[in-house]
Computed example of a mutant assay.
Amino acid sequence: MRIEFTKMQGAGNDFVVLDETRGRLGLTAAHYRFLGDRHFGVGADQILTVRPSPAEGIDFEYIIHNADGAEVEQCGNGSRCFARFVRDKGLTTKDVLRVKTQKGVISPELTPDGRVTVDMGAPVFAPADIPFDPRGAQPVAVGEWQKWPLALDNTAQAAPVLVATVSMGNPHAVLLVDSVETVDVATLGPAVQQSGYFPQGVNVGFLQVIDRSHVALRVYERGVGETLACGTGACAAAVAGMRLGLLDARVDVQTRGGVLTIAWAGAQGDLSAPVRMTGPATTVFQGVIELPDSL
Rank of each mutant, 00 (worst) to 15 (best):
Ala191Lys: 00
Ile58Leu: 05
Ile63Asn: 07
Leu25Gln: 03
Val16Ser: 04
Glu4Ile: 11
Pro139Ser: 02
Val161Leu: 07
Cys235His: 10
Ala281Gly: 10
Pro134His: 01
Asp270Arg: 12
Asn77Ile: 09
Leu97Gln: 02
Ser167Tyr: 05
Asn170Met: 00
Tyr220Lys: 13
Gly26Ala: 10
Gly57Phe: 00
Ala11Pro: 03
Ser272Tyr: 12
Ile3Met: 04
Glu71Ala: 15
Thr6Val: 13
Ser179Ala: 11
Arg84Cys: 09
Asp270Asn: 09
Glu71Cys: 12
Thr101Arg: 00
Ile106Asp: 04
Arg22Ile: 03
Gly233Arg: 03
Phe285Leu: 03
Lys94Ile: 13
Leu162Trp: 13
Val42Lys: 10
Thr255Gly: 00
Gly121Asp: 15
Gly36Cys: 02
Arg2Lys: 15
Val17Asn: 13
Gly279Arg: 04
Val192Ser: 10
Ala29Phe: 08
Val215Leu: 02
Thr182Glu: 02
Pro292Cys: 11
Arg87Thr: 05
Ser107Val: 02
Thr111Ser: 05
Trp145Leu: 02
Arg115Ala: 12
Asp178Val: 01
Val224Thr: 12
Gln254Met: 04
Ser53Phe: 11
Val251Met: 03
Ile210Ala: 06
Gly169Asn: 05
Gly258Lys: 11
Gln193Thr: 00
Val183Tyr: 05
Ala263Phe: 05
Gly104Lys: 06
Glu109Asp: 03
Asn203Gly: 07
Ala137Val: 07
Val253Gly: 01
Leu217Phe: 14
Leu97Asn: 08
Val209Asp: 10
Ala236Phe: 04
Val183Met: 13
Val50Pro: 10
Pro292Gly: 05
Gln9Ile: 03
